[in-house]
Computed example of a mutant assay.
Amino acid sequence: MSDALHIVCPHCAAVNRITVNRLGDQPKCGQCHRPLFDGQPVALDAAAFQKHITRNDIPVLVDFWAPWCGPCKMMAPHYAQAAAQLEPHVRLVKVDTEAEQALGAQFGIRSIPTLALFKGGREIARQAGAMGSADIVRWTQANNA
């Protein structure tokens, strides 16, 4: 890996170039000037999903969920806590499979919540079922080694 990473802004989707040693310095987007990391999962539509998966040089953890799903609602605060712990080394995003049915179909999401870890534009790990924040962090780190 080079000393510069491409990071997609969670607010305006601009691709930013950040040196590895500046990741922890709360970098801001060169286009919209908002923080590139705010410790919160980013809700994505299909177009933003593709950009985040293919253009981020850091791993992207996706929570495939739906608003009617009880376990999804129970896991949401744990997922947010995990985001605060895993950023800036992993981007955490959420995809509402009710609103983005084509994405759910494209990735063969059969049950929700399902977590999928992407690196370099491809899926490297998947886990179905609700988890607590410590388990989300542990699972992500174990699969991103």
Rank of each mutant, 00 (worst) to 15 (best):
V15L: 01
V15Q: 01
V15S: 04
V15E: 03
N16K: 04
N16E: 02
N16L: 07
R17A: 01
I18P: 00
T19V: 00
T19M: 02
V20I: 08
V20Y: 02
V20S: 11
V20E: 10
V20Q: 10
N21C: 03
N21F: 06
R22D: 00
R22W: 01
R22H: 04
R22K: 07
L23M: 08
L23S: 00
G24F: 03
G24N: 00
G24R: 06
G24H: 05
D25F: 00
D25L: 09
D25M: 01
Q26Y: 07
Q26W: 03
P27K: 01
K28W: 02
K28E: 12
K28L: 11
K28V: 12
C29V: 04
C29W: 10
G30Y: 06
Q31M: 06
C32S: 08
C32T: 07
H33S: 14
H33G: 02
H33L: 08
R34D: 05
R34W: 02
P35T: 09
P35Y: 08
P35H: 09
P35F: 12
L36P: 05
L36G: 04
L36C: 05
D38Q: 15
D38G: 12
D38Y: 14
G39M: 15
G39V: 12
G39A: 14
P41D: 13
V42L: 13
V42S: 09
V42K: 09
A43V: 08
A43D: 10
A43S: 14
A43F: 02
A43M: 10
A43K: 12
L44F: 04
L44P: 06
L44D: 05
L44M: 12
L44S: 11
L44Y: 03
D45N: 15
D45V: 01
A46M: 07
A46T: 12
A46N: 07
A46W: 03
A47H: 08
A47T: 08
A48N: 11
A48L: 11
A48K: 09
A48E: 08
F49Q: 11
F49Y: 07
F49M: 07
Q50S: 13
Q50F: 04
Q50R: 14
K51V: 14
K51E: 00
K51D: 08
H52S: 10
I53W: 01
I53L: 09
T54D: 11
T54H: 10
R55S: 15
N56Y: 05
N56S: 12
N56C: 13
N56W: 05
N56T: 15
D57E: 13
D57M: 06
D57P: 04
P59C: 09
P59V: 13
P59Q: 09
P59H: 14
V60N: 06
V60H: 08
V60R: 05
V60E: 12
V60M: 06
V60K: 07
L61S: 13
L61E: 12
L61I: 10
V62A: 11
V62H: 03
F64M: 11
F64P: 06
F64D: 09
F64S: 13
